[in-house]
Design a protein around this nucleic acid. Sequence first.
DNA 1: CGGTATCCTTCTCGATACTG
DNA 2: CAGTATCGAGAAGGATACCG
Lengths: 125, 125
Amino acid sequence: MKETAHPAPDRPQITATHRELLDQVLDKWSLHVLDELCERSLRFNELRRAIPVVTQKSLTATLRRLERNGMVERLIVNTRPIAVEYRITPLGKTLQDLIDALLEWSTANMPRVERARARFDAEEG
Amino acid sequence: MKETAHPAPDRPQITATHRELLDQVLDKWSLHVLDELCERSLRFNELRRAIPVVTQKSLTATLRRLERNGMVERLIVNTRPIAVEYRITPLGKTLQDLIDALLEWSTANMPRVERARARFDAEEG
DNA sequence: CGGTATCCTTCTCGATACTG
DNA sequence: CAGTATCGAGAAGGATACCG
């Protein structure tokens, strides 16, 4: 009976810093890219094929941002022609459980959300 | 030794539907609003004061979206003048643990992220 | 292969003014 | 109090072309 007694005793406040980090790391493409890279390291064009809806530009931007935040590593392999492999870092790995939880939540609650949307849209006319 | 054996056996794929839902529900303002409403129900201007950086327009849009997706309820109290109370729904409540987990992750890993950024920015010149 | 650079359209978002 | 309406700046994002 610990959850009804008080609202939220030690809940951390959302700051601009929090928001900014979560925005950079959990935006639509980042989520997708991290999800793929958690499974296995991939090359640039492999990622493109794994996420067919992303454009080259957006994928590049996403990877650079994730690299800057320490979530993925960029490894240049000196073959002919050049190959670039993207690999999740230990820090990036710490997001895996969260991403899985988000996907599970989404899967589990999608029907309820869709019913809510239908109800809302019906009332609007 | 179950986590090194195979990459990801039953990992759910991210679909456009997943992404869209998470985008609508975990964007910057939604996260903030849900976080506040998980603690207690609030009126419109109370929310504005609780989240001082949000504009009225964005707050309205965020609340409508959350309402449409079944995350919050909008209760019109017929006082003089009118009062509108926003309350989290049971469906919205299912996000609380996730949001807490996101905030905890963000708090815990912020230092590592900042070091990664500093390293990245230094290398760029 | 793994990108950059450029253009251009779309959408977001803040500021401001007004309303029941 | 709790919004809506409108405008305009700026960012996001796609299409396309080109490069080492």
